[in-house]
Design a binder for these strands. Structure first.
Lengths: 162, 162
DNA sequence: TATTGTTATACTCTATAACTATA
DNA sequence: TATAGTTATAGAGTATAACAATA
């Protein structure tokens, strides 16, 4: 049930409007995805290609593992890796122990491109929160982390790697 | 500059881990989009089709306006509306005043489908925040709204319709 | 001429089903 | 047989460029 409370800080001009939790979450997610899409596009990458670079940063999975990690069918990953390989961002290395499978790894170019995109996204995302006080940013980060931790637990997945 | 603050509330079991603002925002946006994708897919809709139904809820724009509202090229909107029209969700009505353009409107079926999807997404989104106290949900909603209000202002766009 | 919309074309992303090669 | 991966195919979604019709 949506409660009708107003914000407790009375120093925000007219009325401190609120979108409500659901609309706020939805619109925020579009804003973040749009930001990521824009940053990625600046390097001729799609969001899923950026995810691929991110997943490979500290892993060298096979195509099947990659499919699981990205939540895609393995046949989708074939094309994804094809295109990234054509651009010299990743490599399929033969796996000596199981000749059916590969080890997909980042090339130096892919790694550095991934880093650059991550850095830019970091900057843009912080820019979006520039209107919040440091304490508020902490609170926001903490509340969102709580939501993500709960969901990870519900899915029996670990949110914090290593 | 990334500040190194730890969470200030010391009452969460082991250590109150925090993803940091940027990762939290990114992962949250993927979680929300995944949720929306799943709900939409349950009705054989894509996220952009859901957005189309949403945009048409209280508007009857032309194809060009629609392109602007959705942030797409008008040629992309042609296919989008084609597919929705084929399914009986929207209609292209001739515009008597300008015979070059249409008025795109929801059919009753499209309107009711949009409502159903919105209701389901609402439920799922609330479910994601079920681990937060009511006061915390308010705070989260308020902080996100602040971010969105600031960004809307920066873009000179109005966030609250009507 | 300018605007509204479509068409032609091309590419990415995605899935399902059938296939190959290896285990 | 079971698993890892690819191929064939199909379709959504997107953009650019060229076009038609209307203003």
């Amino acid at each position: 049930m949506p409660s009708g409370e107003r914000a407790s800080v009375p120093d925000r001009g007219p009325a401190t409007p609120d979108l409500g939790l659901v609309d706020a979450l939805a619109q925020l997610s579009f804003l973040i995805q749009e930001t990521l899409t824009r940053v990625a596009a600046g390097h001729d990458l799609s969001v899923v290609q950026v995810r691929l670079l991110g997943v490979l940063r500290d892993r060298h999975p096979g195509m099947n593992d990659l499919a699981r990690l990205l939540g895609l069918d393995k046949s989708s990953v074939t094309g994804l890796v094809d295109r990234a390989e054509r651009r010299g961002l990743v490599r399929r290395n033969v796996n000596a122990r199981d000749r059916r499978s590969y080890e997909v790894t980042l090339t130096p170019v892919g790694r550095s491109l991934g880093r650059r995109v991550a850095r830019e996204f970091d900057r843009e995302a912080r820019r979006l929160a520039r209107g919040l006080e440091p304490r508020e940013r902490e609170r926001l980060s903490s509340l969102i982390t709580r939501v993500l931790v709960d969901e990870a637990a519900a899915r029996n997945v670990e949110l914090f790697p290593k």
